Amino acid sequence: MALNTPQITPTKKITVRAIGEELPRGDYQRCPQCDMLFSLPEINSHQSAYCPRCQAKIRDGRDWSLTRLAAMAFTMLLLMPFAWGEPLLHIWLLGIRIDANVMQGIWQMTKQGDAITGSMVFFCVIGAPLILVTSIAYLWFGNRLGMNLRPVLLMLERLKEWVMLDIYLVGIGVASIKVQDYAHIQAGVGLFSFVALVILTTVTLSHLNVEELWERFYPQRPATRRDEKLRVCLGCHFTGYPDQRGRCPRCHIPLRLRRRHSLQKCWAALLASIVLLLPANLLPISIIYLNGGRQEDTILSGIMSLASSNIAVAGIVFIASILVPFTKVIVMFTLLLSIHFKCQQGLRTRILLLRMVTWIGRWSMLDLFVISLTMSLINRDQILAFTMGPAAFYFGAAVILTILAVEWLDSRLLWDAHESGNARFDD
């Protein structure tokens, strides 16, 4: 018995066209964080690309023209004298008006014999932002004059995390709450300039795509075929072959399989920071003279006294001054041990922890910024005066060393310790 099946006739004509040209192939790229070699397709503007294995951002879609970056830099340069030299806060102490600005706080630190601690604050609040705007201006002028731009481009990517104007702005709020127990506070004209400078700096850093600047100024022929001998440069993120001198053909720094002496430098910085954190938390970090009496505060006791007036601000200072430094030390110690013992479990967790400490590390400088600003506000000789204690130097040095330890660690070593050939990683 035959089955009668109805015929289905399409209502619209289906047209099949042959592909007349070869589909576009992607360029081969190595991930600078996990060293995976993959094919990167062509990316349009405002599109980002991520590593298929570790999800690290390979290409950032946010990109401004150099002219727009230069305009932002010149605007920031105009704001800087007002943000640093004009009063941020006014207080009335014992019937006398006192003005506080950024430069005055750094000068008070240096004047009291601790120039190293003052230079830490100076670099993060004044030096690094000033280098940022002058570097962008150098790129703008240098591109037109045919100057060598490689050193500036190499420095810009590392400079971003040292620009800490946003953290200093939080420190202004913390210092205001600490001082309000002794005097009446009012915002100064410099505060508005400083807030504007923070906003412009944040926007500029978020749109400063150094890798795209490398592509514009020093374009290189990408690798179009897969080759395990391809290496990625950690300076400019170019994937290719080393030249005859073993250097990256684009930025001219040595092109090595792994960062040289990464573990040794990381261990040295980490152990030194552990040693410095002990006096930083045991010795007094601030000293207040009130009517001839002397009151010393460690980091913890200062947080407890701050909690009596504002528990939320005390929580912020606790996280930045105690929780973050010790968390960074514990995480980095764990990561280094996992590399030495070739741990194969929990790779995803370790990668996330490394990215976390990379982002939060700079916030530990908050305590030094609060001390710097408070020193310029309260300084009335023996009637009422505020000065920093010996722990300030140890704390600042420990924070900087932990930042350097994270920067010096080559994250690809975590993958080397893991089993080879993993296309995915999980716990």
Results as ranks from 00 to 15, higher is better:
Met1Tyr: 00
Leu3His: 13
Leu3Ala: 15
Asn4Met: 09
Pro6Tyr: 07
Gln7His: 10
Thr9Val: 13
Thr9Met: 12
Pro10Gln: 09
Pro10His: 08
Thr11Glu: 12
Arg17Cys: 10
Gly20Leu: 12
Gln33Asp: 11
Leu37Asn: 11
Phe38Asn: 07
Ser39Met: 12
Pro41Asp: 10
Pro41Ala: 11
Asn44Lys: 15
His46Asp: 14
Ala56Glu: 12
Lys57Leu: 14
Gly61Arg: 14
Trp64Asp: 10
Trp64Phe: 14
Ser65Asn: 13
Thr67Asp: 14
Leu69Met: 07
Ala71Ser: 11
Thr75Gln: 08
Pro81Ala: 09
Pro81Lys: 11
Trp84Met: 08
Trp84Ile: 08
Trp84Lys: 11
Glu86Trp: 02
Pro87Gly: 04
Leu88Glu: 02
Leu89Asp: 07
Leu93Pro: 01
Leu94Pro: 00
Ile96Met: 14
Ile98Tyr: 05
Met103Lys: 07
Gln104Trp: 03
Gln104Asn: 06
Gly105Thr: 04
Trp107Val: 03
Met109Leu: 11
Met109His: 02
Met109Ile: 10
Gly113Val: 12
Gly113Ile: 14
Ile116Pro: 06
Ile116Cys: 09
Thr117Lys: 04
Gly118Ala: 13
Gly118Val: 02
Ser119Pro: 07
Met120Val: 04
Phe122Gly: 02
Phe123Asn: 06
Phe123Gln: 02
Val125Ala: 09
Gly127Thr: 07
Ala128Cys: 12
Pro129Asp: 05
Ile131Gln: 00
Leu132Gly: 04
Leu132Trp: 05
Thr134Trp: 12
Ser135Asp: 04
Ala137Glu: 03
Tyr138Trp: 07
Leu139Gln: 02
Asn143Arg: 15
Arg144Lys: 13
Arg144Ile: 13
Leu145Ile: 10
Leu145Lys: 04
Met147Asn: 02
Met147Gln: 03
Asn148Pro: 10
Asn148Arg: 04
Asn148Ser: 06
Pro151Gly: 02
Val152Ala: 07
Leu153Phe: 01
Leu153Glu: 00
Leu154Pro: 03
Glu157Asp: 07
Arg158Met: 14
Arg158His: 15
Glu161Gly: 15
Met164Tyr: 05
Leu165Glu: 07
Leu169Ser: 02
Leu169Tyr: 02
Val174Glu: 00
Lys178Pro: 01
Val179Leu: 02
Tyr182Cys: 07
Tyr182Gly: 06
Tyr182Pro: 01
Ala183Arg: 00
Ile185Pro: 00
Gln186Tyr: 11
Gly188Cys: 05
Val189Gln: 13
Leu191Met: 09
Leu191Asn: 04
Thr204Gln: 09
Thr204Lys: 09
His207Thr: 12
Leu208Cys: 13
Asn209Thr: 13
Glu211Tyr: 09
Trp214Asp: 01
Trp214Met: 15
Arg216Met: 04
Phe217Ser: 13
Arg221Trp: 10
Arg221Ala: 07
Ala223Thr: 15
Arg225Val: 08
Glu228His: 10
Lys229Ser: 08
Leu230His: 13
Val232Pro: 05
Val232His: 08
Cys233Pro: 00
Cys233Asn: 00
Leu234His: 13
Cys236Ala: 00
His237Thr: 06
Phe238Asn: 06
Thr239Gly: 07
Gly240Ala: 07
Tyr241Cys: 09
Tyr241Arg: 06
Arg250Ser: 14
Cys251Arg: 00
Leu257Val: 08
Ser262Cys: 06
Ser262Asp: 04
Gln264Met: 02
Lys265Leu: 02
Trp267Asp: 03
Leu270Trp: 05
Leu270Ser: 11
Leu276Cys: 05
Leu277Gln: 13
Ala280Gln: 02
Leu282Lys: 11
Ile287Asn: 06
Tyr289Val: 02
Leu290His: 06
Asn291Cys: 11
Arg294Ala: 05
Asp297Thr: 06
Ser301Lys: 08
Ser301Met: 05
Asn310His: 02
Asn310Thr: 09
Phe318Lys: 04
Phe318Val: 07
Ile319Ser: 11
Ser321Thr: 12
Val324Ser: 10
Pro325Tyr: 01
Val329His: 09
Ile330Val: 13
Phe333Asp: 05
Phe333Ile: 13
Phe333Gln: 09
Thr334Leu: 15
Leu335Cys: 10
Leu336Tyr: 07
His340Pro: 13
Gln344Leu: 10
Gln345Phe: 13
Gly346Leu: 14
Leu347Cys: 12
Arg348Trp: 11
Arg350His: 13
Leu352Phe: 13
Leu352Glu: 08
Leu352Gly: 12
Met356Tyr: 11
Trp359Ala: 11
Trp359Cys: 12
Trp359Asn: 10
Ile360Thr: 03
Gly361Arg: 01
Arg362Ser: 06
Trp363Ala: 05
Ser364Ile: 00
Met365His: 04
Leu368Trp: 02
Leu368His: 04
Phe369Gly: 04
Leu373Cys: 03
Thr374Glu: 00
Ser376His: 06
Ser376Trp: 05
Ser376Ala: 14
Ile378Thr: 01
Ile378Ser: 00
Arg380Pro: 00
Arg380Met: 03
Thr387Gly: 02
Met388Tyr: 04
Ala391Asn: 03
Ala391Phe: 03
Gly396Thr: 02
Gly396Trp: 07
Ile400Leu: 03
Ile400Met: 09
Leu401His: 11
Ile403Thr: 02
Ile403Leu: 13
Glu407Thr: 15
Glu407Val: 07
Trp408Glu: 03
Trp408Gly: 04
Asp410Ala: 00
Arg412Met: 00
Leu414Tyr: 07
Trp415Arg: 11
Asp416Met: 04
Ala417Pro: 11
Glu419Tyr: 15
Glu419Gly: 13
Asn422Asp: 12
Phe425Thr: 14
Asp426Val: 12
